[in-house]
Design a binder for these strands. Structure first.
Lengths: 123, 123
DNA sequence: TTCTTATTTAACGTTATGGTTATTTAACTT
DNA sequence: AAGTTAAATAACCATAACGTTAAATAAGAA
């Protein structure tokens, strides 16, 4: 079993699988129900479900001939925790941008008299 | 963009690439420096960097014959935002949902007694 | 120019991924 | 027992991913 987080990210790196998770966020669902919205054969969906199951992102029960799938969010939490280690980088960059823009504004004010008033629009 | 998040998750689904990002979290770094800790050829690292670059997770400059790599966290933020949609599922798990599921299981057990006890032979 | 260092690209092989159709398994229905 | 429905597996194919070594490119140093 390749690293849990590797399996999680790999599972999430497919639009179909993310869509399946989004569907399961609305509630448990059978394979046929899950497959319905996709222009894709049942076996293809079945295999996507297997990937999700191996990654621990869903669990499957048995109810007569149906195999209800259920979202399991624990691996998502792990992934979120991993990403959180980098949070400062995207928050920092905004801070720096903000600071940079502030210094620009100060400069502008200082320079205002000298300038042609061309301005400097954010974004 | 949907393609963007796919590229991001795919890029993160590799331990080497995650390690590279961790390394870059400590600061800008050249390809050789990045490659050093890995038992892997330079071209292999170069390709990993290309994947990271395509996913927008790093940027590369030019400084003489070196190509300093720098972490770019914006796609990580996107990924974190995507995951955040599921936060309630891992926070909810010990509250209402779990309790509800437990009562369901109790019901099932209770109902199981009504069966003819035929067992369930699997071939 | 020639040499050295840093990095990328080319060419190649192996394995993984994602899809298909056809078949099989499993459980319910008649 | 025979038929229906739900889902998984088998067999197959095309392409992408990940690694290798060897060669090419780019810039700096001698």
């Amino acid at each position: 079993m390749d690293d849990q987080i590797t399996a999680t990210f790999a599972a999430l790196a497919d639009p179909t699988r993310r869509a399946i998770l989004a569907r399961l966020a609305l509630g448990e669902s059978s394979v046929t129900e899950i497959a319905a919205p996709f222009e894709m054969s049942m076996p293809a969906i079945s295999r996507h479900l297997k990937v999700l199951e191996k990654a621990g992102l869903i669990s499957r029960g048995r109810e007569a001939q149906w195999r209800p799938c259920k979202l399991k969010a624990e691996p998502l939490k792990q992934a979120a925790d991993w990403l959180d280690e980098y949070r400062r980088f995207w928050e920092e960059s905004f801070d720096r941008l903000d600071e940079y823009l502030k210094t620009l504004q100060i400069k502008e004010k200082r320079d205002a008299g000298k300038n042609n008033g061309n301005g400097n629009k954010r974004r």
